[in-house]
Amino acid sequence: MIVENLRSLGHRIVSAVWRIGYASRFFMMILFYSGTSFRRFHLTIKELFSSGVMSLIIILVAGTFVGMVLGLQGYETLKRYGAESALGSLVALSLVRELGPVLAALLFASRAGSAMTAEIGLMKATEQISAMEMMAINPLARVVAPRFWAGVISMPLLSALFSAMGVFGGYVVGVVLIGVDEGSFWSQMQAGVDFQHDIVNGMIKSFVFGVAVTAIALFEGYDAPPTAEGVSGATTRTVVESSLTILFLDFILTAFMFQGE
C-alpha cells in the first residue's frame, strides 16, 4: 500500500518535471517563432482586439469598484488616526504597487487567458492546427506567437487602466462623497507615490504577469487533449495555474522591489 502510494507520488513528480520541461521548451519555441508576429503586425493587432479590447469593460468596472472600496475602507481606518488627508496616498499606493497589477492580471487570466486556452484547444480538437501544419505553415508562428505578444502588450496597459480607474473611484468616494479635502488628497498622493519606485515597478510586475498568464494559457491550450473534456479541463487549469503563478510571482517581485524599507 505504502509502496503503491510512493510509486504514484514518484510518478506524479516525474510527470510534473517532464511537463515543466515541455512547457519551457514550448515557451522558447514561441520566442523563437515570434518574428512573424511583428513582421505581420496585423496578426498581433487582431489578437490585441480579442485579448485587450474585449477585457476593457471588466477591467474598467472592476478598477473603479476596487478604488471605491479602498476609498471607503481607507477612510474608515485613517479616520481613527486623524490622518484622512493621507487617503489619496493610501489608495494610489495600494493600487499602483499591488492591486492594479495583481487584480488586473487575475481578471485577465480568467477573461482572456481562459478564452485563449479554449480557442487553441478547440483549434487542436477540430484539427485546425494539424491542417495548418499540413499546409506547411507553422502554427506556433501563425497562431500562438501573435496571441502571446498581444497578451504581453495588453497586460501593462490594462493594469495602468485599472489603477487609473481605481484612483478615480477612490477620488469619487473620498473627495466627492465623503468630503476629504481635494487638495490634500492629490498632494498627499503625489508626495507618497514615487514614479520610478512605485509606478515603474508596478508596470514591471504587470509585464511579468502578462508573460506568465499568456504563456500558461497558450501552453495549456496547445497541450490540451483534443476532446471536449480535455479542453474544458485545460481551461480550468489555465485559470487555477495562472492565478497561483500571479500571486507567487507577486510575492517574489515584491520581495525584490520593495525590500529594505
Binding site: F49, G52, A92, L161, S163, A164, M165, Q190, D198
Partner: peptide
C-alpha cells in the same frame, strides 16, 4: 478592429501618463 485596438492602446498609455503625472511625482 484597428480603430478599437488603437483606442485601447491610447487609453492604456493615457492611463499610464495620468498615473505618472497626476498620481505619481513625475511632475515634481
Amino acid at each position: 478592429l484597428d480603430l478599437w485596438v488603437g483606442i485601447f492602446v491610447v487609453a492604456g498609455l493615457g492611463a499610464l501618463a495620468v498615473l505618472a503625472l497626476k498620481v505619481g511625482n513625475l511632475s515634481t
